[in-house]
Amino acid sequence: MLAAASDVVLLAHVNPDADALGSALALGLALHRRGTGVHVSFGAPDRPAESLRALDADGLVVPVSAVPEAPELLVVLDTGSVDRLGPLASRVDAAGATLVVDHHVSNGGFGTHFLVEPTAEATAVIVLGLLDALGAPLDLAIARCLYAGLVTDTRNFRAASARTHDMAARLLVAGVDAEAVTRPLLDTHPFSWLGMLSAVLSTATLEPDEARGLGLVWACAGSEHIEGGRQEEVESIIDVLRTTAEAEVAMVLKQVGPARWRANLRSKGGLDVAAAAATMGGGGHYSASGFTADGRVADVVEEVRQALASAPLL
């Protein structure tokens, strides 16, 4: 399908992370090099996160308004459900064909064709396999996009298999500067981040008896905490909270409306938080999932407690 298409639209989920946008750009760059017409986009926000903008080496990212209404071939990457496309969800049914490339265990299937590998640590792993099947050269720009996806979704390769380490080695051989790619993604924040992080962590609550007795730690990032903050700063809160030794599961509730909360759930590998997130109407991976809920914080947290109480052990 990819080799035969003359024009391809590649979509990442709203608020794309490095794996979603990096995967879309890596595949888009390879197709662009073949002479294929390429548009890469996502439903929100208007521009990629600042730390991801350097990945768009050829200027393939376009705004929502520039995405064709009825693409010849639509490729949706790293997106577990069609609602995660936001205002671009209508392109799925309008496209001549829709290929879903994903690694979310909660992906229920949408579009017309599927390449879903829940055992892959990142969608970038699947995309590299696609590039090999296409016979696409692994140049530096493509390798940087793939490396960004690998390093973030494996938590700096701490959750990477031997096969994925081999893939990373291929990308380094292609010329990737690991430090230069990783630093802006994981190790760089403005000074204001320290104040925001301090305010959110002051709300942290440890519940050692929850999550089937394995422990839950959670914090609430209200609009007053995160207003004006960069997406990557807000998303990084969970990585600090999850270091709590007494808790298997960490959760950050981020206020996105007067009584609406977007939650990040993380586990250390002992409990399936994707199952818990699915109970809340969301989804994701066994150890990294999310959902959106309406209501009072106390009520949302109680629902999460109940969902975690029945989540499978891993």
Rank of each mutant, 00 (worst) to 15 (best):
D187S: 15
T205P: 00
A54Y: 14
D56G: 07
L85G: 03
H165D: 06
D187E: 15
G111Q: 01
L74A: 11
D58H: 14
L308C: 06
L130I: 15
A162S: 12
G195P: 03
A288R: 02
A247G: 07
E69R: 14
A30G: 05
A250R: 04
R262C: 08
D299A: 14
H113K: 13
E69L: 11
R144V: 06
G96F: 09
V92S: 00
R230S: 11
A199T: 11
A95T: 06
L241M: 08
G28E: 00
L194G: 03
H103R: 07
G213Y: 09
A274L: 06
F42W: 05
D272E: 10
A95C: 10
A288M: 07
L206K: 13
D294V: 11
L253A: 10
R53S: 09
M1Q: 13
V217D: 05
A259L: 14
T243G: 11
C145Y: 04
L197E: 05
F42L: 04
A204G: 04
A221T: 04
A288G: 05
N15Q: 12
L171K: 01
D294F: 10
E233W: 07
G229L: 08
P118Q: 09
R305N: 08
D58R: 15
E207W: 12
V252A: 00
A4V: 13
V82T: 11
R33C: 08
R47L: 12
V82N: 00
L29M: 14
L186V: 10
F110I: 05
S202E: 15
H103F: 04
G229Q: 08
T243F: 01
A169D: 10
G135C: 13
P312E: 11
G284V: 09
G80P: 02
V105G: 03
R170M: 08
L241Q: 04
L253H: 00
G215F: 03
T243P: 00
A54W: 14
E224V: 14
L55C: 06
A221K: 00
P190Y: 13
R296C: 08
G213N: 10
R296E: 15
A311R: 04
L271G: 01
